[in-house]
Amino acid sequence: MAYPRGGMAVKDLSFRVAKGEFVFLTGHSGAGKSTILKLISADLRPTHGELRVSGFSIGELTAREVPKLRRRLGIVFQDFRLLQDRTAEENVAFALEVTGARPDTIPTRVHRVLTQVGLASRGRAYPTELSGGEQQRVGIARALVNDPPILLADEPTGNLDERSSRGVFQLLRDINAGGTCVVMATHELALVRQTQYRVLEMREGSLVFDSAEERIATEGVS
Protein backbone atom coordinates (compact mmCIF):
# COMPACT_ATOMS: atom_id res chain seq x y z
CA MET A 1 0.00 0.00 0.00
CA ALA A 2 1.66 3.23 -1.18
CA TYR A 3 1.02 6.82 -0.12
CA PRO A 4 -0.36 8.98 -2.95
CA ARG A 5 2.87 11.04 -2.99
CA GLY A 6 5.18 8.07 -2.86
CA GLY A 7 6.59 5.90 -0.09
CA MET A 8 4.97 2.79 1.28
CA ALA A 9 2.41 2.86 4.13
CA VAL A 10 2.60 -0.92 4.57
CA LYS A 11 4.73 -3.37 2.65
CA ASP A 12 6.09 -6.89 2.60
CA LEU A 13 3.36 -8.52 4.57
CA SER A 14 1.37 -11.64 4.14
CA PHE A 15 -1.00 -13.23 6.63
CA ARG A 16 -4.25 -15.10 6.78
CA VAL A 17 -6.85 -14.82 9.52
CA ALA A 18 -9.19 -17.75 10.02
CA LYS A 19 -12.94 -17.61 10.72
CA GLY A 20 -13.67 -16.97 14.38
CA GLU A 21 -10.08 -16.07 15.20
CA PHE A 22 -9.03 -13.24 17.56
CA VAL A 23 -5.98 -11.37 16.30
CA PHE A 24 -4.07 -8.50 17.85
CA LEU A 25 -2.38 -6.03 15.54
CA THR A 26 0.31 -4.36 17.58
CA GLY A 27 3.07 -1.85 17.04
CA HIS A 28 3.92 1.79 17.74
CA SER A 29 1.95 4.72 16.40
CA GLY A 30 2.55 4.96 12.66
CA ALA A 31 3.56 1.29 12.39
CA GLY A 32 0.72 0.61 9.94
CA LYS A 33 -1.96 -0.97 12.17
CA SER A 34 -4.76 1.42 11.18
CA THR A 35 -3.70 1.24 7.54
CA ILE A 36 -4.26 -2.51 7.59
CA LEU A 37 -7.71 -2.08 9.10
CA LYS A 38 -8.53 0.57 6.49
CA LEU A 39 -7.38 -1.78 3.77
CA ILE A 40 -9.56 -4.57 5.14
CA SER A 41 -12.61 -2.24 5.20
CA ALA A 42 -11.80 -0.94 1.68
CA ASP A 43 -11.36 2.56 3.07
CA LEU A 44 -7.98 2.35 1.32
CA ARG A 45 -7.09 0.18 -1.66
CA PRO A 46 -3.90 -1.85 -2.01
CA THR A 47 -1.60 -0.47 -4.69
CA HIS A 48 0.20 -3.82 -5.05
CA GLY A 49 -0.51 -7.40 -4.15
CA GLU A 50 -3.75 -9.08 -3.24
CA LEU A 51 -6.08 -8.71 -0.29
CA ARG A 52 -9.13 -10.93 0.13
CA VAL A 53 -11.72 -10.34 2.83
CA SER A 54 -14.75 -12.56 3.27
CA GLY A 55 -14.72 -13.52 -0.40
CA PHE A 56 -14.15 -9.97 -1.70
CA SER A 57 -10.96 -9.01 -3.52
CA ILE A 58 -10.37 -5.51 -2.13
CA GLY A 59 -8.22 -4.31 -5.02
CA GLU A 60 -10.95 -5.15 -7.54
CA LEU A 61 -13.98 -3.97 -5.58
CA THR A 62 -16.34 -1.72 -7.50
CA ALA A 63 -17.98 1.25 -5.77
CA ARG A 64 -21.24 -0.72 -5.63
CA GLU A 65 -19.56 -3.67 -3.92
CA VAL A 66 -17.99 -1.64 -1.09
CA PRO A 67 -21.27 -1.35 0.91
CA LYS A 68 -21.78 -5.11 0.49
CA LEU A 69 -18.34 -5.77 1.99
CA ARG A 70 -18.93 -3.33 4.83
CA ARG A 71 -22.16 -5.04 5.79
CA ARG A 72 -20.04 -8.09 6.54
CA LEU A 73 -17.76 -6.05 8.80
CA GLY A 74 -18.32 -4.34 12.13
CA ILE A 75 -15.95 -1.44 12.76
CA VAL A 76 -15.10 0.07 16.14
CA PHE A 77 -13.05 3.24 16.52
CA GLN A 78 -10.93 4.75 19.24
CA ASP A 79 -13.02 7.94 19.17
CA PHE A 80 -16.34 6.01 19.17
CA ARG A 81 -17.75 8.00 16.20
CA LEU A 82 -21.25 8.27 17.63
CA LEU A 83 -23.78 10.79 16.36
CA GLN A 84 -24.15 13.23 19.22
CA ASP A 85 -27.74 14.21 18.48
CA ARG A 86 -29.02 10.64 18.68
CA THR A 87 -29.58 8.40 21.65
CA ALA A 88 -27.66 5.16 22.11
CA GLU A 89 -30.64 3.26 20.66
CA GLU A 90 -30.85 5.60 17.69
CA ASN A 91 -27.13 5.32 17.01
CA VAL A 92 -27.41 1.54 16.90
CA ALA A 93 -30.66 1.60 14.94
CA PHE A 94 -29.02 3.93 12.40
CA ALA A 95 -26.73 1.11 11.25
CA LEU A 96 -29.79 -1.04 10.58
CA GLU A 97 -31.81 1.71 8.92
CA VAL A 98 -29.12 2.69 6.46
CA THR A 99 -28.66 -0.91 5.40
CA GLY A 100 -32.37 -1.28 4.69
CA ALA A 101 -33.40 -3.52 7.59
CA ARG A 102 -37.14 -4.14 7.99
CA PRO A 103 -38.40 -1.36 10.29
CA ASP A 104 -40.51 -3.72 12.45
CA THR A 105 -37.42 -5.79 13.34
CA ILE A 106 -35.23 -2.85 14.34
CA PRO A 107 -36.34 -2.24 17.98
CA THR A 108 -35.92 -5.92 18.88
CA ARG A 109 -32.51 -6.18 17.27
CA VAL A 110 -31.34 -2.94 18.90
CA HIS A 111 -32.51 -4.09 22.31
CA ARG A 112 -30.82 -7.47 21.86
CA VAL A 113 -27.44 -6.00 20.98
CA LEU A 114 -27.61 -3.30 23.68
CA THR A 115 -28.32 -6.06 26.18
CA GLN A 116 -25.33 -7.97 24.81
CA VAL A 117 -23.02 -5.01 25.51
CA GLY A 118 -24.59 -4.37 28.92
CA LEU A 119 -26.40 -1.14 28.08
CA ALA A 120 -30.03 -2.26 27.94
CA SER A 121 -31.00 0.34 30.53
CA ARG A 122 -29.07 3.20 28.89
CA GLY A 123 -30.65 3.07 25.46
CA ARG A 124 -32.36 6.45 25.76
CA ALA A 125 -29.18 8.25 26.85
CA TYR A 126 -27.33 10.58 24.51
CA PRO A 127 -23.57 10.07 24.00
CA THR A 128 -22.80 13.12 26.16
CA GLU A 129 -24.66 11.43 29.03
CA LEU A 130 -22.55 8.30 28.78
CA SER A 131 -19.05 7.53 30.10
CA GLY A 132 -16.25 6.79 27.63
CA GLY A 133 -16.58 3.05 28.28
CA GLU A 134 -20.33 3.20 27.74
CA GLN A 135 -19.90 5.17 24.51
CA GLN A 136 -17.49 2.54 23.26
CA ARG A 137 -20.03 -0.16 24.12
CA VAL A 138 -22.59 1.70 22.03
CA GLY A 139 -20.01 1.80 19.23
CA ILE A 140 -19.51 -1.96 19.57
CA ALA A 141 -23.28 -2.53 19.65
CA ARG A 142 -23.60 -0.54 16.41
CA ALA A 143 -20.83 -2.61 14.85
CA LEU A 144 -22.50 -5.86 15.93
CA VAL A 145 -26.12 -5.13 15.15
CA ASN A 146 -25.89 -6.37 11.55
CA ASP A 147 -24.36 -9.65 12.80
CA PRO A 148 -21.09 -9.28 10.88
CA PRO A 149 -18.74 -12.28 10.79
CA ILE A 150 -15.75 -9.94 11.23
CA LEU A 151 -15.24 -7.17 13.79
CA LEU A 152 -12.44 -4.64 13.25
CA ALA A 153 -11.46 -2.63 16.31
CA ASP A 154 -9.01 0.24 15.90
CA GLU A 155 -7.54 1.06 19.33
CA PRO A 156 -10.95 0.50 20.96
CA THR A 157 -9.52 1.06 24.44
CA GLY A 158 -7.24 3.94 23.52
CA ASN A 159 -9.50 6.63 25.02
CA LEU A 160 -10.60 4.68 28.08
CA ASP A 161 -9.42 4.37 31.66
CA GLU A 162 -8.04 1.03 32.79
CA ARG A 163 -11.30 -0.27 34.26
CA SER A 164 -13.36 0.64 31.20
CA SER A 165 -10.59 -0.73 29.03
CA ARG A 166 -10.79 -4.10 30.72
CA GLY A 167 -14.58 -4.12 30.39
CA VAL A 168 -14.51 -3.33 26.67
CA PHE A 169 -11.77 -5.88 26.05
CA GLN A 170 -13.74 -8.55 27.90
CA LEU A 171 -16.75 -7.67 25.75
CA LEU A 172 -14.68 -8.17 22.59
CA ARG A 173 -13.52 -11.54 23.93
CA ASP A 174 -17.12 -12.55 24.60
CA ILE A 175 -18.07 -11.53 21.09
CA ASN A 176 -15.23 -13.60 19.70
CA ALA A 177 -16.32 -16.53 21.86
CA GLY A 178 -19.65 -16.31 20.04
CA GLY A 179 -17.88 -17.03 16.75
CA THR A 180 -17.12 -13.56 15.43
CA CYS A 181 -13.64 -12.99 14.05
CA VAL A 182 -12.05 -10.02 15.85
CA VAL A 183 -9.07 -8.06 14.55
CA MET A 184 -8.01 -5.55 17.19
CA ALA A 185 -5.32 -2.94 16.65
CA THR A 186 -3.76 -1.84 19.92
CA HIS A 187 -0.49 -0.67 21.41
CA GLU A 188 -1.51 -1.68 24.93
CA LEU A 189 0.73 -4.64 25.54
CA ALA A 190 -0.84 -5.26 28.94
CA LEU A 191 -4.05 -6.33 27.21
CA VAL A 192 -2.15 -8.45 24.70
CA ARG A 193 -0.26 -10.30 27.42
CA GLN A 194 -3.48 -11.24 29.26
CA THR A 195 -4.39 -13.76 26.58
CA GLN A 196 -2.96 -16.32 24.22
CA TYR A 197 -4.54 -14.78 21.14
CA ARG A 198 -2.52 -14.50 17.96
CA VAL A 199 -0.35 -11.36 17.71
CA LEU A 200 0.76 -9.64 14.51
CA GLU A 201 3.37 -7.01 15.24
CA MET A 202 3.96 -4.18 12.80
CA ARG A 203 7.01 -1.97 12.54
CA GLU A 204 7.45 0.83 9.99
CA GLY A 205 4.81 -0.66 7.73
CA SER A 206 6.13 -4.20 7.77
CA LEU A 207 4.98 -7.29 9.59
CA VAL A 208 7.85 -8.22 11.91
CA PHE A 209 6.26 -10.84 14.10
CA ASP A 210 3.42 -13.33 13.77
CA SER A 211 2.92 -15.38 16.91
CA ALA A 212 1.31 -18.11 14.85
CA GLU A 213 4.47 -18.60 12.87
CA GLU A 214 6.95 -16.96 15.22
CA ARG A 215 8.95 -15.84 12.24
CA ILE A 216 8.85 -12.90 9.94
CA ALA A 217 7.10 -13.41 6.68
CA THR A 218 9.75 -12.45 4.22
CA GLU A 219 7.80 -13.04 1.08
CA GLY A 220 4.45 -11.79 -0.16
CA VAL A 221 3.17 -8.30 -0.50
CA SER A 222 0.37 -6.23 0.90
Binding site: S41, V98, T99, N146
Partner: peptide, 17 residues
Protein backbone atom coordinates in the same frame (compact mmCIF):
# COMPACT_ATOMS: atom_id res chain seq x y z
CA UNK B 1 -19.49 14.98 7.14
CA UNK B 2 -19.19 12.85 10.26
CA UNK B 3 -22.63 11.38 9.70
CA UNK B 4 -21.77 10.60 6.09
CA UNK B 5 -18.56 8.82 7.08
CA UNK B 6 -20.46 6.73 9.64
CA UNK B 7 -23.16 5.90 7.11
CA UNK B 8 -20.52 4.66 4.68
CA UNK B 9 -18.72 2.62 7.33
CA UNK B 10 -21.87 0.77 8.34
CA UNK B 11 -22.53 -0.14 4.70
CA UNK B 12 -24.94 2.52 3.39
CA UNK B 13 -24.88 2.81 -0.38
CA UNK B 14 -23.99 6.16 -1.93
CA UNK B 15 -27.51 6.39 -3.38
CA UNK B 16 -28.95 5.97 0.11
CA UNK B 17 -26.60 8.62 1.53
Amino acid sequence: AREISIMRLVGATDAFI
